[in-house]
């Protein structure tokens, strides 16, 4: 088996693996329960899928080496964690509480001024989530979010 054949099959395998990772990331974006876990699916699986596809394209188009695909891959791997971190930080600052394990989400901190935070109600959360992932928690374990006092603000 020559080197050209090995590189051709490597390119095909990279492209297929990238498409599969993109599909898994999209499935996570659709199915996971709150915006932080969705951000985790989009920021890790989606970025890895796109980077794998770009690596496969760079392997396929090598007759002059395609620096553009490699540059796009490096750019993607450098900026996708930053984007995910920015989304999570801004959402947490804005009052969206992450969904903790053990039944009910923790009470949202009531702001001393201004309207209540958007999209935080338990009813809306329960309507939007088809299948909560934490139903199998044993009854004797207390919920994790119980100790959080209602007036607690966003921690640094």
């Amino acid at each position: 088996m020559t080197m050209v054949t090995v590189l051709s099959w490597t390119a095909s395998a990279l492209i297929l693996a990238g498409a599969l990772f993109s599909l898994v990331g999209a499935l996570g974006v659709l199915r996971l329960p709150d915006c932080y876990t969705r951000m985790h699916a989009a920021g890790k699986a989606g970025a890895l899928g796109a980077a794998l596809i770009l690596a496969g394209v760079a392997t396929a188009l090598r007759s002059p080496l395609s620096w553009e695909a490699l540059f796009a891959m490096i750019l993607l791997l450098a900026t996708a964690p930053l984007a995910a971190h920015l989304i999570a930080r801004a959402a947490y600052r804005a009052g969206f509480r992450p969904r903790l394990g053990g039944g009910e989400p923790p009470p949202s901190p009531a702001p001393p001024h201004g309207p209540p935070a958007r999209g935080l109600g338990a009813a809306e959360e329960a309507e939007s989530v088809e299948e909560p992932l934490d139903r199998q928690t044993p009854a004797e374990q207390p919920p994790v979010g119980v100790k959080r006092s209602p007036g607690e603000g966003p921690s640094r």
Binding site: V29, C35, R38, G46, A83, F96, R118, E124, E125
Partner: peptide, 14 residues
């Protein structure tokens, strides 16, 4: 159908 704003931004990113 993402209920909150961050969900939609995550979807746009993906």
């Amino acid at each position: 159908l993402g209920p909150t704003g961050p969900d939609r931004v995550v979807a746009i990113d993906a």
